Amino acid sequence: MNYVELDSYSRKWIFTHASMPVEADDLAQIKPFTQARSAQLWREHVSSQSPDADHFEKGDWPADQKIWSQSFDWQSAWDGDDIDLPDAISAELSWEDNTTVFFCYEKYNVVETKWGVFKRNWKNFLFFDDGPLLLGRKKKQAVWFKSNGTFQIGHRPDRTPSGE
């Protein structure tokens, strides 16, 4: 089994919070991975050595500052009434709504959903903003959300993840 039932997910409340409830159709498409599957995806797509964004080191592709854009603000959009993703993300990521995405909180906590679901509910995903990475399956671009309220868009290096 690769997924944890959403009802058993430790962070389920971020998707069912009274102030920002996620529609039932979208909830059905938010699939947290088991810790073992999360760790496997993290190793394949993010880092084989670092457990979270605070510990990236030489050899981890996210640690390469040359691949990242300038920093943009996400916090003010999150705090505002507008539900749309920040423009810089929408402009850079022209993914189809049915593109599978991985929202990587850390090595043992990765959530799979579709790009369209993420776009509609991005604020929920960012209730925890301790450096998560958004990756599109078979996509080069990545978004790194920083806990200081900014994000950067980067291009992952060429490497073929196993099992994809």
Rank of each mutant, 00 (worst) to 15 (best):
S10P: 00
S10H: 01
R11S: 00
K12W: 00
K12Y: 00
K12N: 10
W13F: 06
W13Y: 08
F15V: 00
F15G: 03
F15R: 00
F15H: 02
F15D: 02
T16E: 14
T16A: 08
T16I: 07
H17C: 07
H17V: 06
A18C: 01
A18V: 00
S19D: 09
S19G: 00
M20C: 06
M20I: 12
M20N: 14
M20W: 13
M20P: 00
P21A: 05
P21Y: 05
V22W: 09
E23M: 08
D25Y: 00
D25A: 07
L27Y: 09
L27S: 08
L27K: 14
A28I: 10
A28M: 10
A28F: 06
Q29C: 13
I30P: 07
I30F: 10
I30T: 07
K31Y: 05
P32C: 03
T34Y: 07
T34Q: 11
T34R: 09
Q35G: 11
Q35Y: 01
Q35P: 01
A36Q: 15
A36T: 14
A36G: 11
R37A: 15
R37W: 11
R37G: 03
A39S: 15
A39W: 04
A39E: 14
Q40K: 12
Q40P: 01
Q40R: 12
W42G: 03
W42R: 07
R43Y: 06
H45I: 08
S47P: 04
S47A: 06
S48L: 12
S48A: 14
S48P: 02
Q49A: 14
S50K: 04
S50W: 02
S50P: 08
P51T: 07
D52P: 08
A53E: 09
A53W: 08
F56R: 02
F56S: 01
F56T: 04
G59S: 10
G59V: 08
G59P: 10
W61K: 02
P62R: 03
A63Y: 13
D64I: 13
Q65L: 12
K66C: 07
I67V: 15
I67L: 15
